[in-house]
Design a protein around this nucleic acid. Structure first.
Lengths: 125, 125
DNA sequence: TGCCGTTATGCAAAGATAAACATATCGGTA
DNA sequence: TACCGATATGTTTATCTTTGCATAACGGCA
């Protein structure tokens, strides 16, 4: 047998979750909302985005509404009726938010990864 | 009136939450468990720690048990009966975990703060 | 040995969260 | 104008989480 590492391997994963909240803490924009916005951008409707995210339309609609009310401006432009029954698309502000969020997530992913390796090292000593 | 910043102030806060999980994702060590461990260290009993954290003893006990089962080793040494009815104290492993976690949290707090400022700047342009 | 306060644990009740269901509205198009 | 499919929203059900209650075991101490 060759040598090997300590036997108490710290065999767990570090996860994290981000969200934006209002000062009062009532409304939140969770990662779910970002998923929805991405879906809306890709599919052109909240219904399709909700299905893709595997959450009920009712909840998706409520979450989006709450996010918009919290920010104080719209993230989507919605229309009812029309050839395809209606559709939703992102406002410029939403597009900016998605971009900014992606950058933020990448940066934090790196920070978490780094912190995790340190945690692990400490726990294996 | 002098000049002032853009009016669409991005007036929300960035929050984050950390937790450790097993590969399968079933068991987790949430921030709550860290709070409990801190409480146990300070007060010497799970009951007191649960009260301080404002969660039911039932849940605190269950969470702790789950965390220990996930890690595969004990985080607390418990005794029943005795002069004060019983008590709990941290194992060396738990102390190490708390230390490592505090360092991790500090590091990530900084990273999040930094990322938030960037996000904000982007959203205000 | 009976009491106290804590750990330990099952089970029922209560609360929170999300899904499901039910309609209504809208505006192109057949 | 009737139909389609998506938005919009209230109401009811189901699910998931947490609390609360009950009860047992334990071991110093009066």
């Amino acid at each position: 047998m060759g040598k090997r590492g300590k036997s108490n391997r710290f065999n767990v994963f570090l996860n994290y979750k981000l969200w934006l909240s209002s000062m009062s803490g009532d409304g939140i924009i969770s990662e779910e909302v970002y998923t929805l916005l991405n879906g809306i951008r890709d599919k052109g409707s909240l219904k399709a985005a909700a299905e893709a995210a595997d959450i009920s339309y009712r909840k998706a609609w409520g979450d989006l509404k709450q996010a918009e009310s919290m920010l104080g401006y719209d993230l989507t432009e919605k229309t009812r009726g029309g050839k395809k029954g209606g559709h939703s698309e992102l406002t410029p502000a939403a597009k900016k938010l998605l971009e900014a969020y992606a950058a933020l997530q990448e940066k934090l992913d790196d920070a978490v990864e780094e912190a995790y390796l340190e945690l692990k090292k400490k726990m294996e000593n």
